[in-house]
């Protein structure tokens, strides 16, 4: 293993190379919680309502300003547990590595994954590696499954949303989408924008005590607009959003203007959208704004009393419908 600089098919064949790769790289970064001598891991010290979620990660490029596929694979899965009202406890990791992948790079990405899990206080208890032939993968794909426990007495869900409830977002939208796009250097644009990729647990924990907290979701692919449509689909209520209230950073605005993108459809990786009763909305906002991660949080809209579309009142005072995302957003060519 120490002589190898690149992943070979033999790193996935069950033999010496694979054993050494797991020991010298994965176990080293994941710590004692990962016992490779067992086929299945017990989950000690866990009680209450268990919650589980799983996600796959295929980001390109694998490293971008503010994160990489390793940190993203932890944040993405923990965030899904967090917004569902759970405290994450355990994580499993599957790595699908393409033949020819540089081992030093793999080490860097897996180290980041291990560090991110440690910072969030979750233990990696099981894992698997596979090597796919050159040309059959995008360098590295990761799959993580998270297990957590539901916070007692916290009962969140789309079914609790009522007309008049407020929509909050925890910070500026679209940073991740634009940061990754700039990192791909497709348009000859570059910039100092950093992805918002982060663990949202501090944000979700901050609202646990609010009786008016109905529902939380992290807007990832499809962005804020997609979350509003999930709410609309499930509840049947329309929604009114205020463009001037939605936080968007200046560089994101500038790139959107240049390429014809709509920030409402751009991915975030460290934001939370919360639906909170009218009464508790200001309290929720204050709780978020007290956190470094929530300094730019805002109340951005209201659940309507009737069925209807998601309507955005633009900063000029005009109105438009925020439609459901159809295709991937494309840059304009005109």
């Amino acid at each position: 293993m120490h002589d190898d600089r690149y992943i070979q098919l033999a790193h996935g064949n069950g033999g010496r190379r694979m054993r050494e790769l797991i020991a010298s790289l994965f176990v080293r970064h994941f710590g004692d919680s990962l016992n490779t001598q067992r086929d299945a891991a017990p989950l000690p010290d866990i009680s209450g309502d268990l919650m589980i979620t799983t996600d796959s990660f295929t980001v390109n490029p694998l490293e971008f300003p503010g994160g990489n596929i390793g940190s993203l694979a932890v944040h993405g899965t923990l965030n899904d547990l967090a917004v569902a009202g759970a405290e994450p406890r355990y994580l499993t990791v599957n790595a699908l590595i393409e033949e020819g992948f540089e081992i030093a790079r793999l080490d860097r990405l897996i180290a980041s994954l291990g560090d991110t899990a440690r910072e969030a206080g979750v233990a990696i208890v099981a894992g698997d590696t596979k090597v796919v032939a050159r040309g059959e993968g995008g360098g590295l794909y990761l799959v993580t499954t998270g297990i957590g426990t539901r916070v007692p007495r916290l009962n969140l869900g789309l079914e609790h949303i009522e007309p008049g409830d407020r929509l909050l977002v925890s910070g500026p939208i679209g940073d991740h989408g634009i940061a990754v796009m700039l990192a791909r250097e497709q348009f000859g644009l570059s910039g100092s924008l950093t992805s918002d990729a982060a663990c949202v647990l501090p944000l979700t924990r901050a609202l646990h005590a609010l009786p008016g907290l109905r529902f939380m979701r992290d807007p990832t692919r499809g962005g804020l607009a997609t979350v509003t449509h999930e709410i609309r689909e499930a509840t049947g209520y329309g929604m009114s959003l205020e463009e001037s209230a939605v936080p968007v950073r200046a560089p994101v605005k500038a790139v959107c203007e240049m390429l014809g993108y709509d920030p409402y459809y751009l991915a975030c990786e460290g934001r939370v959208v919360a639906v909170v009763s009218e009464q508790d909305a200001e309290k929720a906002l204050a709780l978020w704004r007290a956190l470094p991660q929530g300094a730019d949080a805002a109340i951005i809209g209201t659940i309507d009393h009737k069925t209807g579309p998601v309507v955005l009142t633009t900063s000029l005072g005009g109105q438009r419908v925020l439609d459901e995302l159809e295709d991937d957003p494309l840059p304009r060519i005109c």
């Binding site: 014809g260 709509d262 009142t313 633009t314 900063s315 000029l316 005072g317 005009g318 109105q319 438009r320 304009r332 005109c334």
Partner: peptide
């Protein structure tokens, strides 16, 4: 331009302009 039309529609400009002004999308 299609880019013009996108901005006009996304800002809801038609609903903000005085009656009588029509904005017609063109060949771009």
């Amino acid at each position: 331009c299609g880019g013009h039309e996108r901005t006009i529609s996304m800002a809801g400009l038609r609903s903000l302009l005085p009656a009588g002004i029509e904005l017609i999308p063109g060949p771009g």
